[in-house]
Amino acid sequence: MTELVSRPSLAVELAGMHLRNPVMPASGTFGYGQEFTPYLDLEGIGALVTKGVSLHPKAGNPTPRIAETSAGMLNAIGLQNVGIEAFVRDKVPFLERINTPVVVNFFGNTLDEYEQVAARLSDVSVVRAVELNISCPNVKQGGIVFGTDPVAAAQVVERVRRQLKIPLIVKLTPNVTDIRVMARAVEEAGADVISCINTLTGMAVDLKRKRLHLANGTGGLSGPAIKPVALRLVYQVVRSVSIPVIGIGGIMTAEDALEFLLVGARAVQVGTANLVRPGIMAEIVAGIETYCQHQGIADINDWIGSLNEE
């Protein structure tokens, strides 16, 4: 018989950050948080992860930028963002008023760019941690994606780490042969936390016009369609590093989140689901709490990584 727990503890710790619960948005699906205030209490989620920011403003790709797919979507937004200075000037004042840890996702096209953004973010007091998006091409080195090459990935992590006084989350791309190699490389280079997965590269064809649907040709697949792949990759990463892992990919419900936690993720990020249901993270948090109550789980940390594997 399981005992009912009236107030289970959902708090988790990530590289010294205390989160009230393990649920946070995935970068690029939550704007800078403000867009969601009519639908969601920003102080009810574990952390707030902002849209990827770069050294200079970035205009993004031409349209069409999105395509719906079976239980998922492709996006080729092209990392459109206002740039680091406008972010600090226009977005940070709002973030300062919210009592929830702020994680800023960022990216660059060269090692120098990554370094400069990290240095700038490290000085902004509201930023509690940064999330490094390494799914970007290195324009100085023939466009090879940092996150698909263990040497390039380690190099960018090391350089960024040196600029930071706050925790560094490194976000891995699933578009690699063996994600464990990447995970170990970034852990060794100084990552404090790993988050995974970013989107899976895909394509959609417009039969009527005999063209690729997205102006960019390819796009990133996200949503429920990718959840099984994400679970497998999170499972593998958890077992190949000793730093905490944030699970991402297709989470729509509390059960989905609980699955990621069970295979060992310390926290989860909710992406595409925010676009469909802007209040969904509150429902996921409430659902996790109810589950813990009914299953007699007094502390979510007892659930994390408790997968039965004989």
């Binding site: 690029g28 699906t29 939550f30 704007g31 349209t63 069409p64 395509a67 979507m73 937004i77 469909v276």
Partner: peptide
């Protein structure tokens, strides 16, 4: 009209 995912300014899929 534009292709939209979120309708609230979060995804930037609908730009013109």
């Amino acid at each position: 009209e534009a292709l939209m995912a979120c309708g609230i300014g979060a995804c930037l899929g609908c730009v013109v």
